[in-house]
């Protein structure tokens, strides 16, 4: 589904991603962990098409296509979804109007007619229930005045509305209380199908109790320095990152 090959990227001339390779197959869940500032969000931004990150080397192939040549909206319509670490507040733009436009753009891309107003509202209701989001939130402006946790739930709600093939969730679990965490995880599990995939960026092993990853990667200083099964998350929880940093330094010295 997604093949990243030796990806290097800079922000304002500073090297942030220093050669990342990663393969995600349909139906897989990959977790990416790693210390603050290691480049996790930057990787997500490159995949979603953020312009201020400049790709200097490497390729990204998504469903056989060159992802890097596509605009952010094309990527979205081809099934990529980014759950933002810091969702943006957009005063004056209602959630309803936002989602209606987005859903209909997706439908147009698939050659489908726009949803009627009543069908759309039905879809909204269904998905709201599915991710247990407060009904009132959907009547407000996009993320405006939402609490940290509400914003994160809203990302999952949007994901449920758009049914992506590859969802990249950037710390969607941060700032959630225990119940919200369970809801978010359930949301992911309900959407999960054999043909769609997830990249879950997180700092906490507890999310991975609910969303069980097939693979766990550790990103450190712009590189994936360790890849293993879900037990790696437990090990990190216990021991922190120091031992990995040491391993990396030793391998450079060696």
């Amino acid at each position: 589904m997604l093949v990243i090959n030796n990806l290097k990227a800079t922000i304002s001339g500073k090297n942030i991603l220093k050669g990342i390779s990663l393969k995600v197959k349909p139906g897989e869940i990959h977790a990416i962990m790693g210390p603050n500032g290691s480049g996790k969000s930057t990787l997500a931004a490159v995949l979603a098409g953020r312009e201020f990150v400049e790709v200097t080397e490497g390729t990204v192939t998504y469903l056989g296509k060159d992802l890097l040549s596509m605009s952010p909206e094309e990527r979205a319509k081809e099934g990529i979804f980014l759950g933002f670490q810091y969702p943006i507040e957009i005063p004056g733009v209602s959630m309803v109007n936002f989602m209606k436009t987005a859903v209909n753009e997706h439908r147009k891309h698939k050659g489908l007619d726009p949803l009627s107003a009543s069908d759309f509202l039905k879809l909204m209701r269904e998905k709201k229930e599915m991710v247990e989001i407060d009904s009132k939130l959907a009547n407000r402006s996009v993320n405006e005045g939402f609490s940290g946790g509400e914003k994160k739930k809203n990302e999952i709600f949007q994901m449920a509305m758009l049914e992506p093939r590859l969802a990249i969730l950037d710390e969607t679990d941060s700032g959630l209380d225990i119940d919200a965490l369970r809801i978010v995880a359930n949301g992911v599990n309900k959407i999960k199908r054999p043909d769609n995939s997830f990249i879950v960026i997180t700092h906490y092993q507890r999310l991975l109790d609910y969303i069980v990853p097939d693979v766990v990667h550790v990103l450190y200083d712009g590189r994936i320095v360790k890849t293993a099964g879900k037990e790696l998350a437990l090990e990190l929880e216990e021991k922190g990152y120091d031992w990995i940093k040491k391993e990396v330094e030793n391998s450079i010295l060696a």
Binding site: P72, A76, F98, T101, H106
Partner: peptide, 19 residues
């Protein structure tokens, strides 16, 4: 905000209008 809208599949022109 523009990028946020685009990342949901809304084209740039429409996203600008919405903003």
């Amino acid at each position: 905000a523009l990028f946020y809208l685009q990342s949901r599949g809304i084209n740039k022109r429409e996203a600008r209008l919405m903003l």
